[in-house]
Simulated scan of single mutants.
Amino acid sequence: MSKPKLASKVCVVCLRPFSWRKKWRRDWEQVRYCSKRCSGQRKQVNHGLLNNEKEAV
């Protein structure tokens, strides 16, 4: 499979696009984060969004 034909998604934390990797072949549908770093930061991002929503109300 050549790189231009690989599936891609957008990371829900950093909002950057990332491409399919062989290690994700079994569970590509469940992959939401581009890296372990983003996976670890998901709670911090969600917490920040909640704080911003409270200020807006």
Results as ranks from 00 to 15, higher is better:
E29C: 00
K9S: 07
R26T: 05
Y33M: 03
K43Q: 03
K23Q: 08
R42W: 01
Q44V: 08
L15M: 07
V31S: 12
C34Y: 08
W20G: 03
S35V: 01
V13N: 13
F18I: 06
L15H: 15
R37Q: 07
S2C: 09
K23Y: 01
F18H: 06
K36I: 01
K22Y: 13
Q41R: 15
C14R: 08
R42A: 07
R42E: 08
S2G: 14
W28C: 10
N46L: 09
R25L: 06
C11M: 02
N46I: 02
R21K: 14
S39I: 00
S2F: 13
L15S: 13
L15N: 14
S2E: 15
R37A: 10
V12D: 15
C38I: 00
V31L: 06
S39L: 02
R37F: 00
K22C: 04
K36H: 06
K43I: 00
C11L: 05
Q44A: 09
R32Q: 12
V12S: 13
K43W: 02
V10S: 09
L15G: 10
K3C: 03
G40V: 00
C14S: 03
Q30E: 06
R26N: 11
S2H: 15
S35E: 05
V10E: 11
R42N: 06
V12C: 11
L15D: 13
K22I: 05
S35C: 04
R42Y: 02
C34S: 09
Q30F: 07
R25E: 11
V31I: 15
K9W: 03
W24R: 12
P4H: 11
C34E: 08
K36D: 06
C38S: 04
K36W: 06
R37S: 11
C14E: 04
S19D: 12
R16K: 12
C14G: 06
C11T: 05
K3D: 13
C34P: 03
S19C: 06
R26Q: 09
C11R: 12
K23P: 00
M1W: 14
W20Q: 08
S2L: 11
R16A: 08
N46P: 00
D27A: 08
R16W: 01
P4W: 08
K3W: 14
S35A: 05
N46T: 05
P17M: 02
S35K: 05
V45G: 02
F18E: 09
C34V: 02
S39Q: 08
P17V: 02
